[in-house]
């Protein structure tokens, strides 16, 4: 048992180090964009296109002579920022809806479940492509499509948690005491939900980044010259053979952020499990 506990502890420690390390790197990069940004991300300099790394351009320049590092860093703000907006919107719409559907039931719940079934029948990516295809390319429409796809997951998860919890005696007792539906939601149900939502959100965060990037890559999301990572990948496609690093940088950036999000998700899952310590 002691060996198991030890190795588990070790894994946990490694995880924490990994997250803190990666977060630190990312934060340093963001700080850099604010403090030291030397170049304009969209300023072209065709005379200096596809330059090798130098002091002036640590990651070289792209096919239009734009500084890759600058674009990458601004892209971080864009990609992460967009994902956060989409995620926040999905959570804000999904959680209250799930609470209500679970607690009230009735027609609201039935309508919701049919909508959820509809969305779950297709993969997220397909729906997002169809929607942003219908609405036309552009980051605004893409975000709208993502929120539309994602809120259902939150609502569904919250609903199922609520449905299991409401049957328990402590909720009955709260009702006997005349606590309002709102108070029961806030005091008794939210603590059950918050951990799950955070875990799901941190895992979704990585997925949304990938979704934004991949839709931008196929031209449905951010449009050139916006330095979004997926768009950058798309733009670097023709130069892949001669200058593969143009593709490698945004690719690595996406991998790093998604990795952090996933590790963070794992960590949060452990953290919100109140009972974990006592279980053998």
């Amino acid at each position: 048992m002691s060996v198991m506990a030890l190795s588990q502890k070790k894994i946990k420690k490694t995880k924490i180090w990994l997250i803190s390390g990666l977060l630190l790197v990312l934060l340093a990069l963001v700080a850099y964009t604010f403090l030291y940004l030397k170049h304009d991300a969209t300023m072209t300099d065709v005379g200096n296109r596809l330059a090798s790394p130098s002091w002036e351009h640590p990651m070289g320049t792209d096919h239009l002579g734009r500084d890759v590092l600058t674009r990458l860093l601004l892209g971080f703000r864009l990609t992460v920022g967009y994902s956060m907006i989409a995620l926040a919107a999905a959570v804000i719409i999904g959680v209250p809806f799930g609470l209500l559907a679970g607690l009230r039931g009735g027609w609201l719940d039935r309508v919701f479940m049919r909508i959820a079934d509809g969305f779950l029948a297709f993969p997220d990516t397909v729906i997002a492509i169809v929607l942003s295809g219908l609405l036309g390319p552009g980051i605004g429409n893409l975000l709208f499509a993502i929120v539309l796809v994602k809120w259902v997951n939150y609502a569904r998860m919250v609903r199922s948690t609520v449905l299991t919890e409401v049957q328990k005696d402590y909720i009955t007792i709260a009702r006997i005491n005349g606590l309002s539906t709102f108070t029961i939601m806030r005091k008794h149900l939210l603590p059950h939900i918050i951990g799950n939502v955070l875990v799901l959100a941190s895992l979704d965060f990585g997925k949304i980044i990938l979704l934004i990037s991949s839709l931008s890559y196929i031209g449905l999301g951010a449009q050139p010259p916006t330095p979004e990572w997926g768009a950058m990948l798309n733009e670097s496609r023709p130069y892949f053979q001669g200058n593969p690093e143009m593709m490698v940088y945004p690719g690595l950036a996406i991998v790093a952020v998604v990795l952090v999000a996933n590790v963070l998700g794992d960590y949060l899952r452990d953290k919100f499990d109140v009972k974990k310590e006592v279980q053998p």
Binding site: K168, D169, Y170, T172, I173, A174, I176, N177, L179, K187, H188, P191, H192, V274, K275
Partner: peptide
Amino acid sequence: QTVFQNPTASLNPKLKIKDSLLD
């Protein structure tokens, strides 16, 4: 007021004892 058979189900597992007590 009431006390039910199953004390485990009667307390919200995510709330500290004092918070359940004060409900």
